[in-house]
Amino acid sequence: MSADPSKDLLLITCASGKQATRLLPLLSEWKRLRLAVHSSSSKDRLQSQHPHADVVQTDLYSPSNCAALMKDVNVVIHIGPSYHVHEAEIGYMMIDAAVESHQNGTGSLKHFILSSVLNSQLRKMMNHDCKRVVEEYIMESGLPYTILQPTTFMDNIPVQVFMQQEQPKFVSAWSTENKFSMIALRDLSEVFRKVLIEREKHFYAQYPLVSTHTTLSFGEAMSIISSKIGKEIQVSVAPYREAVDSVLVRLFGEAVGVDQRSKDVAQRMILFYDNRGLVGNANVLEWLLGRSATQFGDWVDSRVGEESQKK
């Protein structure tokens, strides 16, 4: 049975992050939304943007808080807090709360959608490994689930910032020569919506999600952007410790005072990407979308167009 946006209660965790922010505008028909956030500023912002939603400021690292969030929920999109020292445990708690709510099919919970990561088997990266064990936990839970596994987001690249700079610079945290597969958040959000609405068609599926048809190094990506904005982007690689700090600042707003266990995650990821990159295949995503995926050059064009319209 498909979802019923007029009646079903949808819970989204980490609802102020990149994934949910791009998804929420596609859910205008969804009458009952519960959005879980961590900070008061996120709560205020989302409540103003989505006045009909139940926006809950909460700490997910709590079984009772997870259970309270799951009350009367029919479908949940669980996006774990990236680099959180207890991301895996939070995933377990959300799944435990969902199992209680599902009650072997007699309860309110009908579908658990897990946002994971491409190639979660790569245990050398701690942010992949914690998602891997959450995937295993949900597979053994008895819940009707779908696992989405997106790759690196194109949208993390600040094209519009480059356009505003006289001499744009890109300082990479890892090698600019290793190959990556990327995904546009536009494509990912459409997959979320499709899986959400079609429900049973996607039970027990794992979907590796990639937009780009060919692999792309960050050096090649900067060359494409340079050609489209008419400015040469100066490309360099940050020293290792500076690279770690830059990742932490992007995630937490600061590098000083961040839990060492979160620093460990950033350090492992940078070392892995500096040697190996991250690659996958676009076939599954295009099958889900029923259209060609967004290619990097087209995505850059869209960002350039958005910035041009502001002038």
Rank of each mutant, 00 (worst) to 15 (best):
A238L: 11
H213N: 13
P168Q: 09
T13G: 03
R186I: 13
W30K: 06
E307F: 14
A221N: 02
K179P: 01
S115Q: 05
V76P: 00
D4P: 00
E177Y: 06
S62N: 11
G253I: 00
V265H: 09
L285D: 04
S101H: 01
I270L: 08
F192Q: 10
I138F: 01
I225Q: 11
G91P: 01
K228S: 08
V73E: 05
L216R: 02
M154D: 04
H38G: 14
Q164W: 03
V134C: 04
G297D: 03
D155R: 08
L285R: 03
D298F: 07
E89I: 09
I113D: 02
S217M: 08
Q234N: 15
I233A: 01
Q309K: 14
Y137P: 02
M139D: 11
A36Y: 06
D264K: 05
I113N: 09
S120M: 09
E135F: 02
M154A: 08
I183C: 04
K201G: 10
L109R: 02
Q160M: 15
D187L: 05
H84W: 13
S236I: 05
I77A: 00
E232K: 14
S226D: 05
A293L: 10
E177V: 02
H38D: 07
K18A: 14
A98M: 03
P5F: 10
V244E: 03
V117L: 11
M1N: 14
L33N: 01
K131Q: 09
V99C: 12
V210A: 08
Q149N: 11
I77K: 02
L289N: 07
H213F: 10
R32M: 06
S108V: 08
E136K: 03
E306W: 07
E307I: 14
D298A: 12
L271M: 13
S82N: 12
R32E: 09
D59Q: 13
R250Y: 12
V191T: 02
Y61D: 14
K18Q: 13
Q206N: 08
S40Q: 11
Y207S: 04
Q167A: 15
G91L: 03
C14H: 08
M154L: 09
H50A: 04
H50C: 05
E190N: 11
V73L: 01
V191I: 14
Q267E: 15
F272Y: 14
A53Q: 00
S2E: 15
W30L: 03
I95H: 01
Q57R: 13
R261T: 13
K201P: 04
